[in-house]
């Protein structure tokens, strides 16, 4: 218990420190800060399902897109503030996630097959959105600028968005901290580690997985609204597509999946690298930034297959709270 309190304290202190960054940092740094928090939050959401419950979704863009499109559509067509639309999108994404989970888990789809189903559904969403003219079809949707106004989540400077994303990431980490120490969290881990054994010990594995995917989808959609408000433009490919889906899970994998801080650490490492290499290199050597980014990913995967935190965890030789290996296949008892 003490360890948890220390972690909560650390989280709160870090949050407070980060609140002061905008008072002296440039807009460029604040921009990077926003992206770090947004992706930390999204990867944290993915981590609940992928890291703790061990169900690797490669299609979280589906939920991101639902969040982005729903809040923006409500804002554009009915003037509903994204602060409200955000929750509508989250509920729709949560229900969608639950339904996908129900179909998959009901029929025992897991592992690579679950990943394939999620890719397929996110890809299908690209085409569905492309064919709905009410939400802009292939042209996408734009968030109209209505002036600096907190109540419609629009800010004149990047600092406002920075704070919103910071709060989201902060709450996401706190939630994960709670999950990691709760019965729910242990149930998710037991499902990941060995589903048959979990069932035999009284774990309702179906319910645990459904709760994980619902919560994960719900949170991802909230991230989708933040994404839409910040970038003010989306099209089907940019949110539902494989790009965001893969990015979200990269942060979690690089940081260390199934750990509380892994996704945030992953975002903290990768986002600045991506931004800086793009800023420095995209002018002179087009594509070189992507090459370097890819190289870093390969190196991390080679030398730290459990992610950055996974390595630290095993150096500290194994205390609690570090159940973090992916790809362990349960020994079936069929």
């Amino acid at each position: 218990m003490k360890a948890v309190d220390r972690q909560v304290t650390f989280t709160v202190v870090l949050f407070v420190v980060l609140l002061f960054i905008p008072t002296f940092a440039s807009q460029y740094i604040i921009n990077i800060g926003f992206m770090v928090f947004l992706y930390a939050f999204l990867a944290t959401a993915w981590n609940i399902l992928g890291g703790y419950a061990g169900q690797h979704s490669l299609g979280h863009g589906l939920f991101l897109g639902i969040g982005a499109y729903v809040s923006t559509y409500l804002f554009v067509s009915a003037g509903i503030t994204p602060w409200l639309g955000m929750w509508v999108g989250a509920v729709i994404a949560g229900v969608t996630g639950w339904f996908i989970g129900y179909l998959c888990f009901r029929y025992g789809i897991k592992g690579a097959y679950f990943a394939l189903v999620t890719i397929a559904l996110a890809e299908a969403a690209v085409y569905v959105a492309t064919n709905i003219q009410a939400i802009g079809g292939a042209g996408g949707l734009e968030v109209p600028w209505k002036g600096n106004n907190f109540w419609i989540m629009q800010f004149g400077s990047r600092t406002g968005y920075y704070y919103v994303a910071l709060v989201a990431a902060f709450l996401g980490v706190l939630l994960t901290l709670w999950i990691a120490r709760s019965r729910f969290g242990y149930y998710l881990i037991s499902v990941r580690e060995n589903e048959d054994a979990a069932e035999a010990l009284g774990v309702n594995t179906m319910k645990a997985k459904l709760m994980a995917i619902t919560l994960s989808a719900f949170m991802t959609a909230i991230g989708g609204t933040l994404y839409a408000q910040y970038f003010t433009y989306m099209n089907p490919r940019s949110v539902f597509g494989e790009g965001p889906s893969v990015q979200i899970l990269l942060f979690a994998i690089i940081g260390g999946i199934g750990t509380v801080w892994g996704p945030a650490v992953g975002a903290l490492i990768l986002v600045p690298i991506a931004e800086i290499t793009r800023a420095e290199l995209s002018g002179s050597f087009a594509g070189a930034n992507l090459l370097i980014y890819g190289l870093i990913l390969v190196l991390v995967m080679l030398f730290m297959p459990k992610g950055v935190l996974g390595i630290l965890g095993s150096l500290g030789k194994g205390k609690k709270n570090s159940p973090g290996e992916i790809g362990h296949e349960p020994v079936g008892s069929k």
Partner: peptide
């Protein structure tokens, strides 16, 4: 059928 990546105590906690 253990849960390999968690401690013995945590294994039993699941039950």
């Amino acid at each position: 059928q253990p849960f390999p990546e968690i401690t013995a105590l945590e294994n039993v906690m699941i039950g």
